[in-house]
Nucleic acid binder design. Structure first.
Lengths: 191, 191
DNA sequence: GTCTATACCTGGATAGAC
DNA sequence: GTCTATCCAGGTATAGAC
């Protein structure tokens, strides 16, 4: 710690607070306080709140792309790679139980606000969907790869929403197992 | 039209606006304008914004109970009754594509706000879960009724979230069919 | 680049006349 | 029960000194 510029710190803090408290409920004062700068100084780095949101989404897109690439090398087979996706529900269990899915909750909030950045935020979803579709194709499910990708994305979203509401670890593990089972069956069908 | 009292009208409008715009993003001015009363008059009926939220949640609980009772009479078998639940995704398709699930999005928002009414809102979820569990038990799945209920609830939540993000009717219909297929398989296993 | 001070607006909430 | 007027807190944004 730390080669980070102030701008980068602002984006990191904003990223976390937007996730934990929601976009609208996070104020400049909240972010400035955590970064340890004055509110005035803030505007030297970002002109508007929308500009911070754009930077946060852009950073999330970059981080997500990096994570997907990591999974490409972590998983030897398409099935293993897709399991990496399913298992983020376990990896991020604590945060998901507290705040839900970072992508799903942001997209839902922006939809209600009818916010201009809606489409940008949606690209986080399409990133996962397209990557999953590629994996399902590699698994031999070229014909319905995109449907399978959407199905899995939907199930993980639903699990995140209910995990957030009920704070139930057992439920998450059971659903993760069920998704892995479902995945294996789809792989067997293809083979 | 209308035998409704002003208080009832306020709750109806607030219910709709909380769904469409979110709780925090809906102001007293928004509600007052749609009801057609002044902001000052507003406080004659509800002292605080939290009080309106309580009233809205309470009304939703009442309406939900009525809907579940209706499904009890609509469906001849437990499987048919559960299908009533699955099909709300089709019935409310347009609204879900625009605003997501009324229950899921409210619960998620209140979680981020760390709002006192979180637990009350969660009762909307438990209402569905418990009703579904009763139906699965009646279907002969006493042993795993609650797990099946949570699974179905999660899937419908996920479909609502992605339907909201992608505005994809075809996806909703495909997932509804898949859920009905899954349900039938569970019923066959029990028989 | 960082600060203080401040303008401006919105939103929740109150008082009091009618 | 309904209104107008008003207060106050908090949030976004700007100006300008250091």
């Amino acid at each position: 710690m730390t080669g980070k510029t102030t701008s980068e710190e602002i984006v990191d803090v904003a990223d976390r607070l937007f996730y934990e408290k929601g976009y609208e409920h996070t104020s400049f004062a909240d972010i400035a306080a955590e970064v340890g700068i004055s509110r005035g100084n803030f505007y030297h780095h970002f002109k508007t709140k929308d500009a911070i949101l754009d930077a946060v989404i852009s950073q999330r897109l970059t981080n997500t792309r990096a994570m997907l690439e990591q999974w490409e090398t972590d998983g030897q087979t398409p099935e293993e790679r897709i399991r990496c996706f399913i298992r983020i529900l376990i990896t991020n269990q604590t945060k998901i139980m507290d705040y839900g899915c970072p992508v799903g909750t942001l997209v839902s909030e922006l939809a209600k606000l009818n916010h201009a950045a809606q489409n940008d935020a949606n690209r986080l979803f399409t990133l996962f969907r397209d990557w999953l579709a590629i994996q399902f194709s590699a698994l031999g499910r070229e014909a319905d790869a995109e449907d399978l990708a959407m199905h899995l994305l939907a199930r993980s979203q639903g699990v995140a929403t209910l995990a957030n509401a009920f704070h139930d670890e057992r439920f998450i593990r059971a659903e993760v197992d069920a998704m892995c089972g479902w995945l294996h069956a789809r792989a067997q069908e293809a083979a």
